[in-house]
Design a binder for these strands. Sequence first.
DNA 1: CTGTTTGATTGGTCTGACCACTTTAAAGAG
DNA 2: CTCTTTAAAGTGGTCAGACCAATCAAACAG
Lengths: 184, 184
Amino acid sequence: MHGKYASSFHENISKIRSLIVQASLAPGDRLPSERELAETLSISRASVREALRALSFLGIVETRHGGGTFLCEQDRHRYIEILSEFIVTKQTKASDIVDMLRLLERLAFSEVEPTPERVKLLEANLANDREFRQQLILGLDNELFIRIWSEVNRFYDGTDAGELYTIEERTQLLEMWRKVRMPE
Amino acid sequence: MHGKYASSFHENISKIRSLIVQASLAPGDRLPSERELAETLSISRASVREALRALSFLGIVETRHGGGTFLCEQDRHRYIEILSEFIVTKQTKASDIVDMLRLLERLAFSEVEPTPERVKLLEANLANDREFRQQLILGLDNELFIRIWSEVNRFYDGTDAGELYTIEERTQLLEMWRKVRMPE
DNA sequence: CTGTTTGATTGGTCTGACCACTTTAAAGAG
DNA sequence: CTCTTTAAAGTGGTCAGACCAATCAAACAG
């Protein structure tokens, strides 16, 4: 009748969400460990991880290596509100979108550690404006941030605008990033 | 010097994106299989899957069980544009957000198959408006849709409005869903 | 040419192990 | 007793190999 594998991706997300509600977890609280969740919900740890990754992208939970998985603080949701309000109040002029993107990307430069691998990766994509910016953002360890950037950038792509930075600017940004964060 | 595990989540996403660009894949094209990607990029298949899941949530790729992983059609991006335009042109009146949510959720009812498990799950959450709607949406097999709903709903939550449906409406929706989709 | 069967391919899930990071508590120094 | 150091347990991250489930394509039968 039923197949061997009973669980499914979306069901697992529902299960975890139900568990969060039943346990009356508040923002900031820690969820049971992945191993506990797997046993409690009778699914494999790999499936638990896929579900948690999805909830992470939805801005519902946040994982810390070695620490645990936590319910997101409500504050993180304000990213979205700020973005929405921005779009509304500013009437979405193209120039504002550009400002927003530049702001987010400058922030990324200050947050992301310039490891040799990342620097090399950005150098390789120096000629492609869009790729360059995307690779930079993907270095961030904040999935909600990535998602918001993705939204704004998609909006930007829809305007058929040209490059956000000239290649000279990109080169300069990269150089500055390396020097300021690794001074020697 | 270096640890045993060389790969990291964000690097893997970058690797796959670079591969997409280098291979000059166009929207609709199929990516190499997960097993091929794992071997090519020298990372485990589990890590490939986590990266692909992320790209899926970003609306960049789309997976089909047994079929493969494909670059998203540009059309799917229009969801976001439609949403953005909606927010802008409609001045984000609370009533419009409500309409939008109701629209999305009616759509979900017509798309999601009413399996006994799902029906049972919704019945269990009949008393909680927010949970009820979230569980419904999570039954969808379209992560971009889920993401958009999530955005709008978060905006809705920010307005401190009450329940979107009364419990009578929820009961009625559930009953209708079961009957229309499983007529006997 | 059309429809069916069958084998290979591919994404989905499971298991169990080990690695890297955190947290905690025990052990030690003062 | 207090503070520091250190060891161990706990947790998320990665890996490997296996099998399940859905899809696809080639071979086959009509």
